[in-house]
Simulated assay, not measured.
Amino acid sequence: MKVLSTKAYKGAMDFILEKGRPLEKSLFQYEFNNGSAEEVLKALKSYQNEDGGFGNGLEADFRLKASSPMATSVALQHLVRLADHPQADEMITLAIQYLEYTFLEERQGWLAVPPEVNDYPHAFWWSVHDNGMSWIDENWGNPSAELIGYLHLFEDKVQVLQVPKLVDQAVQHLLELKTFESEHEMYCYLRLLAMVPAQRTEKVERQLTKAVQSLVKLDRENWEKYVPFPLKFIPTPEANHFGIPAFKVEDNLDFFIDKLEEHGRITPPWEWTTDLDVWEQAKQEWSGTLTLGALISLRTFNRL
Rank of each mutant, 00 (worst) to 15 (best):
M70C: 10
T72E: 03
S73V: 04
V74R: 06
L76R: 08
Q77L: 13
L79V: 05
L79D: 11
L79S: 05
R81C: 03
L82D: 08
D84G: 14
H85V: 02
H85W: 08
H85M: 07
H85P: 04
H85D: 15
P86K: 07
Q87R: 11
Q87H: 09
Q87W: 04
A88L: 06
A88R: 01
A88M: 07
E90Q: 14
M91A: 04
M91F: 08
M91L: 13
I92L: 08
I92N: 02
T93A: 15
L94P: 01
L94Q: 12
I96K: 05
I96A: 11
Q97I: 02
Q97E: 14
Y98A: 11
Y101H: 11
Y101P: 00
T102I: 10
L104G: 00
E105P: 10
E105H: 04
E106R: 01
E106F: 00
R107I: 05
R107D: 07
R107M: 04
Q108P: 05
Q108Y: 04
G109L: 02
G109S: 04
W110E: 04
W110M: 03
W110D: 02
W110V: 00
L111R: 08
V113G: 08
V113W: 01
V113K: 04
P114H: 00
P114W: 01
P114V: 00
P114L: 04
P115I: 00
E116D: 14
N118M: 07
D119R: 08
P121C: 05
P121V: 00
H122Q: 15
H122N: 14
H122W: 04
A123Q: 11
A123G: 13
F124T: 06
F124Y: 14
F124R: 15
W125R: 13
V128C: 10
H129E: 13
H129Y: 11
H129T: 06
H129A: 07
H129P: 10
D130K: 14
N131W: 01
N131D: 15
N131F: 03
G132N: 07
G132H: 05
M133W: 04
S134Q: 09
S134V: 03
S134E: 02
W135P: 01
W135V: 09
I136P: 00
I136H: 07
E138K: 15
E138I: 02
W140A: 01
N142C: 08
P143I: 02
P143G: 12
S144K: 04
A145M: 08
A145E: 07
A145R: 02
E146A: 09
E146Q: 15
I148K: 01
I148T: 13
G149C: 11
Y150R: 07
Y150M: 14
Y150C: 13
L151D: 09
L151V: 08
L151E: 11
H152Q: 11
F154P: 06
F154K: 02
K157A: 09
V158D: 12
V160P: 03
V160I: 12
L161S: 05
L161K: 11
L161P: 11
L161M: 12
V163T: 14
V163M: 15
P164I: 00
P164F: 01
P164H: 05
K165P: 01
K165V: 04
L166A: 06
V167Y: 09
V167H: 03
V167F: 06
D168K: 13
Q169M: 11
Q169Y: 10
Q169A: 14
A170G: 09
V171T: 13
Q172N: 15
Q172W: 03
H173M: 09
L175S: 10
